[in-house]
């Protein structure tokens, strides 16, 4: 299980503005260990899925060039108080993490 995702969602009218922080090393596989000089194995998030009340509304596919501890911001239309926003990811080692938040 990956580290928990931090989500902050704010409702503006019927649009939910969501910011999410996904703690992850995002190793590109091109970085060398400073001590041993060996390449550090690639370990990065490949898929991020955003669900609004259980319906997929946004899917992100990432390569190795997304920064460490990725941050994403997006907005969802047609949102209301009590709606559930879920963010989940899968990395190249099949590790996963998911977190959900309820709009206030």
């Amino acid at each position: 299980m990956g580290k928990p995702i931090k989500i902050r969602a704010k409702l503006k009218g019927d649009i939910a503005e969501v910011k999410a922080l996904l703690p992850h090393d995002m190793e590109s596989g091109m970085r060398r260990d400073p001590d041993s000089g060996e390449l550090v194995a690639a370990h990065y998030i490949t898929d991020v899925t955003i669900e609004h009340n259980g319906e997929q509304v946004l899917v992100a596919y990432w390569g190795t060039a997304v920064s460490k501890n990725p941050y994403i911001a997006f907005s969802i239309k047609g949102a209301a108080v009590g709606d559930v926003i879920k963010v989940s990811w899968t990395d190249n080692k099949s590790d996963t993490s998911e977190t959900e938040t309820t709009l206030k």
Binding site: I15, L58, A60, V66, A73, F74
Partner: peptide
Amino acid sequence: ASFDMSPKTVAVISVRIK
């Protein structure tokens, strides 16, 4: 990065890259 949008997402995306 590539983001698949749906009619329910606003066409604005922020991300941080290397």
